[in-house]
Structures are given as C-alpha cells and as structure tokens.
Deep mutational scan, measured.
Amino acid sequence: MATGGRRGAAAAPLLVAVAALLLGAAGHLYPGEVCPGMDIRNNLTRLHELENCSVIEGHLQILLMFKTRPEDFRDLSFPKLIMITDYLLLFRVYGLESLKDLFPNLTVIRGSRLFFNYALVIFEMVHLKELGLYNLMNITRGSVRIEKNNELCYLATIDWSRILDSVEDNYIVLNKDDNEECGDICPGTAKGKTNCPATVINGQFVERCWTHSHCQKVCPTICKSHGCTAEGLCCHSECLGNCSQPDDPTKCVACRNFYLDGRCVETCPPPYYHFQDWRCVNFSFCQDLHHKCKNSRRQGCHQYVIHNNKCIPECPSGYTMNSSNLLCTPCLGPCPKVCHLLEGEKTIDSVTSAQELRGCTVINGSLIINIRGGNNLAAELEANLGLIEEISGYLKIRRSYALVSLSFFRKLRLIRGETLEIGNYSFYALDNQNLRQLWDWSKHNLTITQGKLFFHYNPKLCLSEIHKMEEVSGTKGRQERNDIALKTNGDQASCENELLKFSYIRTSFDKI
C-alpha cells in the first residue's frame, strides 16, 4: 500500500482533458527560462521544448504516446526543470519506465491550478516501474492521483506527508504495488545497510526511497516546507523545498512566496507586481503582455491589467481597466465587458449561442446573426445582446428569417469595421425574408467608422429604411451602385405612401 494514499474509496472516473512563447529569463536562482504550460502528445517531438525550461508557468501534460519505446527515452533528460506552477499529468506514455532521468531536479509542483483537485496525476502508464522524482520536495496545493499503472512499484516507500501538507485526498490505487509483488529495495538494503531515512506512518517504520538508488530526502521537522541542505541544516524561511546553503534567500532552489532578481522575498516591493503567484514583474512586463494579447485571437491570451499590486489576466467583477495605466478602477454604474472572439468572429444561430455573449459591452471581433427560429426570440436576444455598444469588426445579418427588427441591439452605437466582410463591408444584410426595420432612427444613433453597407434580398425592408441608415451611420456616399439592390429590397412591402385627393359631386333626387 502506498504510504499516505487512500484505498478502496469510491472515486469519480478520471477524465483526461485534452506555445513556446518565453516569458522571460528567471535569473540567477533558476538555471534556465520560464516556459508556458505545455500539452505534449502523440510523439516526442515537442518534448524537446523543455530543454531550457527551469519553470513551467502553467501545467505540463505528457500523454497518448503509443509508439514510443524505452530506448526512445534513454537520452532524454531535462535537468534544468525545477518547478511547475500548476500540475504534472502523465497518461498512456508507452515505453517510459521512470522519471528519474527525465526530470531529475523537479523540486516543486505548486498546484496553482489543479487537474480535478490533483497536482500530480500518473494514470495508465503501462510501462512505468517507478516514479523516480527523487528531488520532489513540495506539492504546495492539491493532491496526488496514481492509478492503474500495472508495473509501478516504489510507492509504499514514499512518505507523501513530507511532500504535501495533507495526504487525506491522495488516491493511489490499482498499481502493481497493490499486489505486494514489488519487493522494493532501498539503497544499501541488499548489503544489509540502512542508507535512507525511515519514518513512521500508520504504525509502520519504513525506509523512504524513490528507487533502488535514490533515497527520499527527509528534512528535520523544524525546517517545515522550506527544505534543508545535504547536511540537514534548514533553508531560509522564504525558500521552498530545498537550498544549497542554509538561511540564505539567494540560495533557495525555489521560493515559498515570490522570486525577485535572484532572491526569494515575502512580497513584491514597489515598483514590482505579483505575477502568477510566484514571481515579481515590473510595469513594462505587464504592459507588454497586455499589448501582445490586445489584437491576438490565441486562446488563453489575456490583456493583463494591474489590481491590488498584482498583474492579473482581467479586472475583477465591479472594476474596469483604465487604459492609460492598466489599473483596475471601480465602475460607475454597470461595468464594461470586452469579449474577445477566439477566431475573430462568432455566429449567433440560437439563443444558446447568444447567451455566451451575455453582459458583453464591447465585441472584439465580428458578429454573424443567422437565426431561423426560436421561442420568445426578441426578448431572449435583447437579454443577451442588448448591452453590446461596440463591435470592432463587422455585423452580418444573414438568412435570419425569424427577425423582424434589429432593435434587440438596443445599445449598439459603434461598428468600427477594423475587419470587413469580403474585404469591403462593415454591415452586411443578406436574404432576411421578414426583416422590416433596422432601428427606430428617431431614437437610435449608430456610427460606422469604416467599410460599406450591403443589402440584398431583404424583400420587406424598404429602401427608405436603408437610406436612413446611410445618413445616420455616416456611410452615405461610400456605397457603390450594386451594394444596395434596388429590386430585391422592399419588393414585397408597401414602401411608397402617396396622399390621394378626392373630389365629389353631391346629387339628390331633384338636383344634379
């Protein structure tokens, strides 16, 4: 039985969820670079991206490699990797027998973001014989899940209580170790020597080791999670996991709180800001991140802002960003909400898709409305799209047979046209069989910064309504002859009103 693990408890099935942008060198404390989270699957090609990484700022997932063999891993080693800020997950990587050479110096898994409450997941690794993470000293947050690894031993010899604050939620089941077939031998045991430290858990006094050649490092209890030197002297209180010299914040392997210019500090002093819960960055760093993602459509890219001495992905609820200094300031009234469309555009074809934009005031991208039916549609669209004030790209209304009016965009005031449909149009209306009105132009103002209007096959939309939009939106004169079809717009509506004058002759039985 794995020490510190839980057996036999019912657990939810383990679901495996399925960018080499360097964020800056980590400095003297770390020998390499800070790398983003990685999802490495199918083959070993991307694994080489770990070569210079000291910190993975995010998670590391290595999974679904069915053609790899043990010899493929023999020359692979990433000794610079010290810390993973989120979680480490391995799933069905064939041929991998140990992690001792792959990650010989991995010391800390912070667990800032977890995989279903777990910071370390080893699942269905069919050839893994031992973990071998002999320098792993601290899992700051989260638990361990090690399950269905039929060859995995050296679990009962690990004292997880020396690595985690609590072992109650560890789930370590259905491994070879369960069948008591392992016969784990710690260093020196074969020669009758006791080389590794022994600890007591559940009444068992057991030597602690990761492999037959690597003991588990056990520091004096007084050192807590700070770690200790090879001689057993406690590291500085700002260290986490390990250090090369005692009581020196510049000799830590990793930091308990924050890293700044080669030393570990309790908090980031001005003019620095907390970033990702582990390091200090200056304003320029946060500003660069903001600008890199301002026009990016890459998933996970955030326009970072500053709030409460932190550089964070977005302002919290009730705050909006001051564009001059990136500071989050309290909103006066309802907060603006910028919604970034991942692929640059979004099609609204149902109430469900409209709900995804609920509360958005600025759309960074283009909207395509293609709704053919739905219950209580006008009210639903207004509830979900009615706060949109600005669209950076274009607005396209296409084959939306259920629409009679666009009044559900009740606050839309600006279409920038930074991206144009077919390279020309910022407003595009095609084949809307029941569209009769755009907006009530006596109450609604709309500016279209650039781009043209396109109207074709809107049989109940009168040309007068379209011409009014040209005047109000500032697009009059931009359109070419064929942009607004004269014969297919309003051709099934009563669009022309003329005053009919009647004269009559009164007659009676005795007068003409």
Rank of each mutant, 00 (worst) to 15 (best):
C196K: 02
G232R: 01
N52L: 07
N105L: 03
Y134M: 10
E147A: 14
C219N: 01
D248M: 07
D169Q: 14
K217T: 15
W278M: 09
S323G: 14
G111C: 02
K310M: 09
D86G: 09
Y154A: 03
L90I: 10
C286S: 02
S225H: 09
N149M: 00
N175Q: 03
K67S: 05
E97T: 07
Y30R: 03
V305L: 09
G227C: 06
T194I: 10
A254S: 11
V265A: 09
L96A: 05
L88M: 05
Q276P: 05
D101S: 06
S317A: 03
R110W: 07
P197V: 14
L136Q: 01
R297P: 09
Q299I: 09
C293Q: 02
M137S: 11
D86Q: 08
L76M: 05
Q61I: 04
F205G: 02
Y273V: 04
N138I: 08
L128V: 04
T140C: 09
V200A: 05
F275L: 07
I201K: 04
F275T: 03
P187A: 12
S161I: 05
P104W: 01
C153P: 00
V144M: 13
C223F: 01
V218N: 08
I56P: 00
S237I: 06
K80T: 12
L120N: 01
D248C: 06
F115N: 01
P187D: 06
F103L: 05
N43S: 08
C235R: 00
K67Q: 02
L260V: 07
N195P: 07
K217R: 08
D165Q: 08
S77N: 11
P271K: 12
F103A: 00
Y87P: 04
L90R: 00
F283W: 07
A230T: 07
F283P: 07
E57R: 03
S143E: 02
N170D: 07
L63G: 05
G262P: 05
S237C: 15
L120M: 11
I222N: 12
W278C: 03
L60Q: 00
E181A: 12
N175F: 04
A156M: 11
Y118I: 00
M38R: 05
K294W: 10
A198F: 12
V167C: 15
L174G: 11
S324G: 13
P334D: 11
C53R: 00
C280V: 00
